[in-house]
C-alpha cells in the first residue's frame, strides 16, 4: 500500500517535471514548480523523512515561489526560444544519465538492511543517541550535535549566499526616486483583516517549530523560513516601508551575522572549556544538560540567520526595478 502511494506520487512528480520543462511561459512554470514542491514534501513524508518534508513544506509554500516571482519580475515573462541545436546537450544528458543508471547497478537494493550505509554510523545514532545526546528526535541529535560541523557549514553557506545576492542586486539598483514600490495590498480589506489575524499566529507557529525540534520535526532552518514568511506576508499586505521601520537593512545584516557568530561562539566556548570544537558535553556539569544547551543555542543561531537572510533577500528584490 505505502509502496503503491510512493510510486503514484513519484509518477506525479515526473509528470510535473516534464510539464515544467515544456512550459514556455515562465510564470506558469513557477506555478507548476509550486506543485512540484508540494509533491516532494508528500514524498518525503511517505519516505519517513519528516524533518526534510517539513523543510520542503516551509520553503516551498512560504519562500521559494515568492523569490522566483521576484526574480521573474526583474526579467521577462516568456522564455526565449533556444537558438542553437539541442543535439549536443541531449547527448551530454543521455551519456550522464546512462552513467548514473549504470552506477546504480552496483548499489544495494532499496531499504536493504545490509547496505553499507546502515552498517556504518547509523546504528550508533539509533541506539546510543538518546543516552549520548538526550533528544527524542534523532535527526536533531545528528544535525546539531554529531554533525554540528556540517550544519555550521550550511549556515555559513546561507549567509554567504545572502551576501552574494545582495551584492549582485546592489549593482543594478537604481536611484532613490526610481525605486519601484511594488504596490502594497492594504486597500484590500479582506486581505488586510485576514493577514492581521494570521501573522501573529504564523510567527508563533514558527517559534513553536524552533523550540520543539528536540521532540518532533522542526528546528532552526524550518522555523527561520516560517518566521520570514510571516514577515513577508506583513510586507506584502501592510507595506514594505512599514517593515523597514522595524527591520532596517543594517539591522537585518547585523542579525544574520549574529546567528553565525552565536553558532561559532558556542564552538569557541566549548574549546575554552577544554572540550573539542562544538563538543557540548563540557557546557554544563551534567553531560546531557550541556548537550541540551548547546543544541538549543546552535539551533537559535540557525533560526536567526535564516530569518534575517530570507527577509533581506525579499526586501532587496522588492527594491530593484525592472530594467526597461
Amino acid at each position: 500500500m505505502e509502496q503503491a502511494i510512493d510510486i503514484i506520487l513519484l509518477g506525479f512528480l515526473v509528470v510535473v517535471a516534464i510539464a515544467v520543462v515544456k512550459q514556455r511561459d515562465l510564470f506558469a512554470s513557477v506555478i507548476l514548480f509550486g506543485i512540484y514542491s508540494l509533491l516532494s514534501a508528500a514524498i518525503f513524508v511517505s519516505l519517513d523523512a519528516v524533518d526534510v518534508a517539513f523543510t520542503e513544506a516551509a520553503v516551498g509554500a512560504g519562500i521559494s515561489s515568492i523569490l522566483i516571482l521576484s526574480t521573474l519580475a526583474l526579467t521577462s515573462r516568456n522564455e526565449k526560444p533556444s537558438s542553437h541545436s539541442v543535439f549536443l546537450p541531449l547527448m551530454v544528458v543521455l551519456v550522464t544519465g546512462a552513467t548514473l543508471v549504470f552506477g546504480t547497478l552496483d548499489m544495494p537494493a532499496f531499504a536493504d538492511p545490509e547496505a553499507p550505509v546502515h552498517k556504518h554510523v547509523a546504528p550508533r545514532y539509533i541506539q546510543d543517541s538518546y543516552q549520548e545526546v538526550g533528544m527524542p528526535n534523532i535527526v536533531t541529535s545528528v544535525l546539531a550535535s554529531y554533525r554540528g560541523y556540517d550544519t555550521m557549514g550550511e549556515v555559513v553557506v546561507i549567509f554567504t549566499a545572502g551576501v552574494a545576492v545582495l551584492l549582485l542586486l546592489s549593482s543594478v539598483r537604481h536611484k532613490e526616486d526610481e525605486l519601484s514600490n511594488l504596490t502594497d495590498l492594504k486597500h484590500h480589506p479582506i486581505l488586510l483583516n485576514v493577514a492581521q489575524i494570521l501573522i501573529p499566529i504564523i510567527l508563533l507557529f514558527a517559534l513553536y517549530v524552533q523550540f520543539h525540534g528536540d521532540y518532533g520535526p522542526g528546528g532552526g532552518f524550518q522555523a527561520g523560513v516560517i518566521f520570514a514568511a510571516g514577515f513577508i506576508l506583513y510586507a506584502m499586505i501592510i507595506g514594505i516601508d512599514e517593515i523597514r521601520k522595524t527591520f532596517t537593512p543594517k539591522y537585518l545584516h547585523w542579525l544574520s551575522v549574529t546567528g553565525v557568530v552565536l553558532y561559532i561562539g558556542v564552538g569557541i566556548v566549548t574549546l575554552l572549556l577544554g572540550g573539542e570544537f562544538l563538543n557540548y558535553n563540557v557546557l554544563a556539569e551534567e553531560k546531557l544538560t550541556g548537550q541540551h544547551w548547546g543544541i538549543f543555542l546552535v539551533e537559535l543561531g540557525v533560526g536567526i540567520t535564516v530569518t534575517a537572510t530570507m527577509l533581506s533577500l525579499f526586501l532587496s528584490f522588492s527594491e530593484v526595478r525592472r530594467t526597461p
Partner: peptide, 16 residues
Amino acid sequence: IFLWFTSPTSSFTLAS
C-alpha cells in the same frame, strides 16, 4: 479552521 480562513481568501484574491 486555518483552511477555512485562508482558502476563501486565496479564492477571492485569485478571482479578483
